[in-house]
Simulated assay, not measured.
Amino acid sequence: MKVDRLVSIIMILLEKKRVGAQELADMFEISLRTIYRDIDAISMAGIPVRSISGVGGGFEIMPEYKVDKKVFSADDLSALLMGLTSISTMIRGDELVHALTKVKSFIPADRAKDIELKANQIYIDLRPWMGNSNTQPYLGIVKTALQENKLLSFEYADRWGNKTTRTVEPYQLVLKSNHWYFQGYCYTRNDYRLFRLSRISDLQMKQDTFIPRDYQKPILDFTEILETLQTEIKIRIHKSVLDRVLEFCTYDHFMPDGDEHYIVNFPFIENEYYYDMLLSFGNKCECLEPRDIRTEMKRRIHDIAAIYDQ
């Protein structure tokens, strides 16, 4: 029994008032016996299909179960299509395919072109240009574990490369700043933790299930905390790294300095992450002030050069 055929039959029954058994059999090029078996499977799944005998009879979904197509505007359908298509590029699953099929079934033929045009005006592709090839299959494993309340085990590397073995109850997938994470209760730490998928290796879904506990959502908005920690430093950048610098501050922080450079009032926190960020711009960036940050940059650059002098 093919799932895609069952979904298609449901869509047809939602679309039409009543469909004869022979018409369905001819449509899918299968026997009447198979059609009756498919209808039984659909009914067992909780969709109320009834059979009407006699002339003009056939199968129909009970009217109170159907949704009026007019409840969705063109903008509603476009937004649903855009969101489902974007997620399905990274996270695969029958439920997403079925959801897309259902949404498309609500599109009237005379509005299909307009709705498709609106849906294509914004395209979100969550797949990276390059990088960790484990991300997409790991997303599938985590999603299945979430649905089935299965424990996950894996090796986890912290920011310094130290590895630990973890067993975790998964509770939520998170996409934050182009990186995928999942939030779960870690048995090693006896607390909730946010795990970055790119730092995970040997991810396994265990057969053991768990009883979900009161879920503690991760803190993802650090705007207020960052504002208290950040100070502005002055950097001079080449125009070739302008787009990268714009990821951290707005264009009103920029002031042209000749034809090739900009002076930027750059938000900065004195820690490893921000120093590494400035160093990543290479010779396209110079820290002008304050003096202590400039001096520390010189020391770090000297240490890097010393490695190559050995």
Rank of each mutant, 00 (worst) to 15 (best):
R166I: 04
I35N: 05
L194R: 09
I219H: 11
P256Q: 00
L226Y: 14
Q183H: 14
M27Q: 14
Q147P: 00
R291M: 15
I39E: 06
I200K: 01
I219L: 13
R294N: 00
Y171C: 06
T223Q: 09
Q136I: 13
L117M: 14
D75E: 12
K16H: 15
C249F: 01
V71N: 04
K113C: 07
E232R: 12
I107F: 09
K284Q: 12
L279I: 07
R300A: 00
V241E: 05
I91L: 14
D158Q: 02
A79M: 15
I237Q: 08
Y123C: 08
Y138I: 01
G161H: 04
N283H: 11
R166E: 04
T135H: 08
D309M: 13
Q183A: 12
P212W: 08
I211A: 11
L81E: 03
Y138R: 06
I225P: 02
I263N: 06
W160F: 10
R244E: 12
L84C: 06
E169G: 00
D309I: 07
L175E: 11
L77A: 08
M255Q: 09
I39H: 01
Q172E: 08
T144H: 13
S51N: 15
I124Q: 12
V174R: 13
D110V: 11
I304S: 09
N190L: 05
D252T: 11
F281W: 01
S153G: 05
P267A: 06
R166M: 04
D243P: 06
L279Q: 03
L152N: 06
R199K: 05
A305L: 09
Q204E: 09
Q310S: 09
I91Q: 03
T188E: 13
D292Q: 07
I263V: 15
R236E: 12
V245Y: 00
R111E: 12
R33Q: 11
A109V: 11
R199Y: 15
R244C: 05
F72I: 01
E270Y: 05
V103T: 11
K17A: 10
I301G: 11
G93Q: 03
F59C: 00
T250G: 15
M205L: 06
D292G: 00
S8N: 08
S105K: 08
F266D: 00
D208A: 13
S51A: 13
D110M: 13
R18L: 11
Q136F: 03
R294S: 02
L77R: 00
D243W: 15
R294A: 06
R189L: 11
I235P: 01
T165R: 14
V7C: 04
A306Q: 10
K176G: 03
A25I: 07
P218L: 06
G83L: 12
Q310T: 15
E155F: 01
D114Y: 10
N149S: 10
T223F: 11
I10V: 15
M82G: 10
L84K: 13
L288G: 01
N132T: 07
G184K: 02
N190E: 12
E15T: 07
L197A: 02
M62D: 10
I9F: 03
R299K: 15
F195C: 00
T89E: 13
I233D: 01
